[in-house]
Design a protein around this nucleic acid. Sequence first.
DNA 1: AAATAACATTACAAAATGGTTATGTATAAA
DNA 2: TTTATACATAACCATTTTGTAATGTTATTT
Lengths: 226, 226
Amino acid sequence: MTTNLLLVEDNTELAGSLGDYLSEVGFDVDYAFNGKSCLELIKANKYDVIVMDIMMPIKDGLTACSELRENYHIDTPLIFLTARDSLDDKLKGFSSGCDDYLVKPFAPEELVCRLNALRNRGKIKNLNQQTIGDLKIDHQLSHVYRKEVNIDLNNVEFKILAILAQYAPESVSSTRIEDMLWPDGTPGSDPLRIYIYRLRQKLDKPFKSSLIKSVHGKGYRLAVPN
Amino acid sequence: MTTNLLLVEDNTELAGSLGDYLSEVGFDVDYAFNGKSCLELIKANKYDVIVMDIMMPIKDGLTACSELRENYHIDTPLIFLTARDSLDDKLKGFSSGCDDYLVKPFAPEELVCRLNALRNRGKIKNLNQQTIGDLKIDHQLSHVYRKEVNIDLNNVEFKILAILAQYAPESVSSTRIEDMLWPDGTPGSDPLRIYIYRLRQKLDKPFKSSLIKSVHGKGYRLAVPN
DNA sequence: AAATAACATTACAAAATGGTTATGTATAAA
DNA sequence: TTTATACATAACCATTTTGTAATGTTATTT
């Protein structure tokens, strides 16, 4: 998963060294040296994240950023990198439409952290979808699919599956699951087995192979095919 | 458009003054005073953004944040607010899964900027008009169209739709919707269900597919096609 | 092989949740 | 004032969830 990054910085020396560092840690770096050329690049290519200096010739960063947002409706995550550290400068930065603002001098590691945070936010939906074999779990919407077929689970069933999925392919003890399902004490009739049964009816019975395995004396586990 | 914010801070004095400020500038603030109670609140309600101290009794912020991400798959934007300013502390913060990291002491205006940036990140900047599948919502004029057909909604119906659209395709709990519709306390007869029914009559019944889905025990959500 | 414990299955009922209809009241427009 | 509309209430029924009890099956131990 490469991240396409545009580095906009008129100081060629800084651009070079910072760009090298970012390339080393896995970013795919393009360069622009002023606000004008950066707009052209952005319109031509699609970037995951933009790193931009504020003070630049021809067109400064603030102007470039707000043009990007207002005129071209491009909402690629953008972080300003600048020596201007006053509150007023920061407010101007954010009101021009940036997503983050980092004051020079900075540790390159912090920049990388912030870039990752920016990038992940846009793709967050993928992060909360989990795939185990032919099983897909959307933790955001509480949706489950097996072989592209929607499986309709209720609250408790979904929670059990989520727990098993989290620790798969390891087994999870019944008491552990029960503690997570009923933090204030498990009801007195051993309902977990019944829910496991129901989960199996929906998740395993319609298919050839069964995903939920009992581990005698230990608990349950989610089998991951190969 | 209200923003529901959870402030997690064990120092009650700071929590109070900061919370007051955030309320003044338009945030809807809930409070938690340690990592444990915050987890319970977050599981019960859905927040648009979380502001969290790191050093807290019972359960510190870093632990709370990573549990949130890993165990509960909750990706609500989260900003750490802390006096720890070393690079190492920041790296730990980001690797626990936060989205931003602000060092104390800070200007409250900067916090607000960053909160707005977090909230808007990845979302459409044009707030006046919204398109979800074949549904068009004009928040300025309170107009709704589905498949180019004008849908005439009354005040409450429109507000419900706007709320669902704001969080689509996520579900929104009934209590949350009620809080937004009737901030001074819900009328005593569960009117939300009736309004949902009427909204469906106008928005879904004339069409083949239905946009408004009930999520049993959770609330309602707007289905986005594909 | 018998006994025991762990696990699976079935059927059922209470409780919570959600959808619908009918109707009453306040508010604003004609 | 009359009328229409928005808003709220009450009551009813259907569905889903959830927990319980009872019984059958499998695995492990003695």
